[in-house]
Design a protein around this nucleic acid. Structure first.
Length: 420
DNA sequence: TCTGGGGTCCTAGGACCC
DNA sequence: TCTGGGGTCCTAGGACCC
């Protein structure tokens, strides 16, 4: 049995944790640079606020309904996520954290004392709420995809009260019949449109297809999904937690950038993040992809990307920074108002199997990097930096509606005043 | 006045080689 | 009259997820 626990409108709910005054109000959270709406609390959803719309286009609608607006506060969300995952982990011995707000639990051989999945799900919900003040939905099913479907039903269908269980053929058919095929995990907007042309409208319609036909018409991915919907586990644990095959760090700027030094510094900062992520999964990269671009909405769209091949696979921030300095002039162009840039690591390999070059010895110093990581982990990621990573305000994010960092800054601790 | 997220994986099609 | 291979690598863009 699999179980999926995920938070309801996580970012919006997280904003309500330390600010009870807005719990009964409609709340939306904006993406980086206050670009789009990325989270809508249930109260705001009832006002038909559209998701992933540019903020400036729905500004008037938000004002009309007096919607509370917040910028993304990742420090806060990451902390609350840790706390929530901690609570959830107590309910099963195998937990897989799938994203910032979702976790799968796998029960094989592990039977909870409460031998009733509905009651167990309610217990998870109540406990998470009591200890974190985050609302979660819980779904049980014999495969990850069915657990995901049950979770969807728990939140969207009437009468489930936040917990749904697929533990019988009747429950499976009932929940899948009520589910639009577009809501199936792994089926996006495009695929759903094509499926509907074949008269496959609900999740149950999809489940009734033969896996071979879906493979032939679409892909192996959809074949797996059909099997999963029929109770055959295809996404095994190892699959889900495999190392990443490429790692990126990209970001748009709060304001357009024309200064080459600022742009280069931004790139170097991305490379620092990528290097850190690489070291976290004990990988090295052979090739770096660097790109800079103006806004695609501008009349003269400028986009330039370059692949830099390292002589020896690396995860050393200093090697990356040097590579950027080397090729930066090929990326930069005068009179372009830069809007976005980033770096990716391609062709990853394991640190364990590094193939050294006899004639160009590695410039890596893993020990040094590990030391840097451990210091920065403890004291904050701006504690030890490269000289070329100089702090620059020029490309910082626009976050006009940022809530306090309740959990990571002493001076932001919530204050409680009481009149006695 | 201007404003439009970020990450990962997959695939079709082009370029090149023999 | 009409017809012409197969493999590898690279890249841009598509698709999906949250």
């Amino acid at each position: 049995m699999y179980c999926l626990v995920d938070a309801v409108a996580f970012y919006a709910s997280a904003e309500k944790v330390f600010d009870p005054a807005i719990r009964s109000k409609p709340v939306v959270v904006l993406t980086n640079n206050d670009g789009c709406i990325c989270a809508i609390c249930p109260i705001a959803r009832r006002l038909n606020i559209p998701k992933f719309q540019p903020y400036f286009k729905v500004k008037h609608l938000l004002a009309k309904h007096k919607v509370v607006i917040r910028s993304s506060n990742y420090e806060l969300y990451a902390d609350l996520s840790d706390k929530m995952m901690n609570v959830i982990s107590r309910f099963c011995d195998t937990q897989h954290v799938y994203s910032i707000d979702e976790a799968f639990l796998q029960f094989n051989g592990f039977t909870p004392l409460i031998n009733d999945w509905h009651k167990y799900g309610q217990l998870i919900r109540r406990t998470v709420w009591r200890e974190t003040k985050l609302p979660v939905g819980v779904g049980f099913g014999p495969t990850p995809t069915l657990a995901k479907a049950a979770n969807h039903a728990a939140k969207k269908l009437n009468g489930f009260n936040g917990v749904a269980v697929i533990d019988s053929e009747h429950a499976r058919q009932y929940i899948l019949a009520a589910m639009d095929v577009a809501d199936v995990w792994g089926v996006g907007k495009r695929l759903a449109k094509k499926l509907k042309l074949l008269n496959i409208n609900s999740a149950l319609d999809l489940a009734k297809q033969t896996p071979q036909r879906m493979k032939r018409l679409f892909s192996v991915v959809l074949e797996r999904t059909v099997n999963e919907l029929n109770g055959i586990v295809c996404l095994n644990w190892d699959d889900v937690r495999q190392d990443k095959r490429e790692i990126f760090s990209t970001r748009s700027f709060g304001e357009r950038l024309t200064d080459p030094v600022a742009l280069k510094t931004a790139l170097i900062n991305h490379s620092i993040i990528v290097a850190r992520k690489l070291r976290q999964q004990r990988s090295l990269t052979k090739r770096l992809l660097l790109f800079v671009a103006s806004s695609p909405h501008e009349s003269h769209y400028y986009k330039k990307s370059l692949v830099y091949e390292l002589p020896v696979s690396s995860a050393d921030s200093r090697v990356f920074a040097k590579a950027i300095s080397e090729i930066f002039t090929q990326l930069y162009q005068h009179n372009v108002r830069f809007y976005k840039c980033g770096m990716g690591a391609l062709e990853l390999s394991s640190q364990q199997f590094q193939q050294p070059d006899l004639f160009a010895p590695s410039q890596d110093n893993i020990k040094l990097m590990e030391c840097l990581d451990s210091i920065n982990k403890r004291y904050g990621y701006d504690t030890l930096t490269l000289a070329s990573q100089q702090q620059s305000q020029a490309w910082h994010m626009k976050r006009a509606f940022l809530s306090p960092q309740y959990t990571t800054r002493w001076q932001h601790l919530p204050k409680i005043s009481c009149d006695l």
